[in-house]
């Protein structure tokens, strides 16, 4: 066994949460894995970061993390956005774990709103921060009703909603948080990732865990599990595409952020996944790299 990593935050347990809380969350995680896509209720605790800022993901990460883990935290695809920095620091401080920006080095990746472009492998765990876990919420605000609808697998309202989009706009007007069907049973919210990322969830070799702290729900998608974006035969699911490539690394296969560069409508498109972009640029010949940055 490795020597105990000395937590740098005196007065608090390893990874902040007390052991009783971790046990409760771990039990919920096991149930969530056994019932893919089902939102298991759990006794979410107040965390030292605000609700809505990743408390669900943080509680899940705190419950699974050990001293041998290597943690990567991203927000909007980037390792260096302020909230990603804040969460990464929280775990460095309370658990003393090694952190990384490299997908391949990480054993646990906590994310808000993106799935890394680089495919994940089967020893990795992807932890999503989830604001609203209930896919039926905006059609039916009542928990007591949506619970019944899931029990009866009654997802008609969801199809009606998507079909209304087609009638009005000629296509399904959902750009992110696009609903999926997990293992042929539960309709699930993938958290507000762009639908560009939805296909990555299907039969992903890594374990996917979802934590919604304020809403007190945990759900999961085990490795190699079917995750199908809802659609219609005549209006099949499709992802976003750009005519541009990344202005920095030239990637044509990644999700692009639009950056406004002047006040005359000028803009450029760059990878939202900063680590993907960095590693591609590092691999470019020297001259090309310089012109890109």
């Amino acid at each position: 066994m490795n020597p105990v990593t000395e937590p740098t935050l005196p007065g608090y347990n390893f990874a902040y949460l007390d052991e009783q809380t971790k046990r409760m969350i771990r039990r919920a995680l096991l149930k969530a894995v056994a019932i893919p896509g089902y939102q298991a209720p759990f006794g979410s605790r107040e965390m030292p970061l605000p609700y809505g800022w990743g408390t669900g993901g943080i509680q899940v990460t705190a419950s699974i993390l050990g001293p041998n883990d290597v943690l990567k935290v991203i927000d909007q695809g980037a390792d260096d956005t302020t909230n990603a920095v804040s969460i990464r620091r929280f775990f460095a401080r309370t658990a003393g774990v090694r952190t990384t920006e490299k997908v391949a080095e990480a054993t646990v990746i906590q994310t808000r709103h993106r799935i890394p472009e680089q495919p994940l492998r089967d020893h990795q765990i992807l932890v999503y921060q989830v604001p609203i876990p209930e896919p039926l919420r905006f059609m039916e605000p009542r928990e007591t009703e949506t619970r019944k609808m899931h029990a009866l697998q009654e997802y008609g309202v969801m199809h009606v909603k998507l079909y209304e989009d087609i009638a009005r706009y000629g296509r399904i007007a959902h750009a992110y948080d696009y609903p999926v069907l997990v293992n042929g049973r539960y309709v699930m919210k993938p958290s507000p990732i762009p639908k560009f990322d939805n296909p990555k969830m299907d039969r992903m070799p890594a374990l996917q865990l979802f934590g919604a702290g304020r809403e007190k729900r945990i759900y999961a998608v085990p490795p190699y599990t079917s995750v199908k974006s809802l659609d219609f035969e005549d209006y099949p699911f499709e992802i976003q595409r750009w005519n541009q490539c990344c202005a920095l690394c030239g990637a044509a296969d990644s999700f692009l952020d639009e950056v406004v560069i002047d006040d005359r409508g000028g803009r450029m498109f760059v990878c939202s996944d900063t680590e993907y972009c960095h590693s591609r640029r590092a691999a470019l010949p020297r001259g090309a790299r310089e012109s890109g940055s």
């Binding site: 347990n13 390893f14 046990r23 771990r26 993390l65």
Partner: peptide, 12 residues
């Protein structure tokens, strides 16, 4: 703390 975490991860 550490052993419970290791056993849990094995079980997960």
């Amino acid at each position: 703390v550490l052993q419970a975490q290791q056993v849990f991860r094995a079980l997960l």
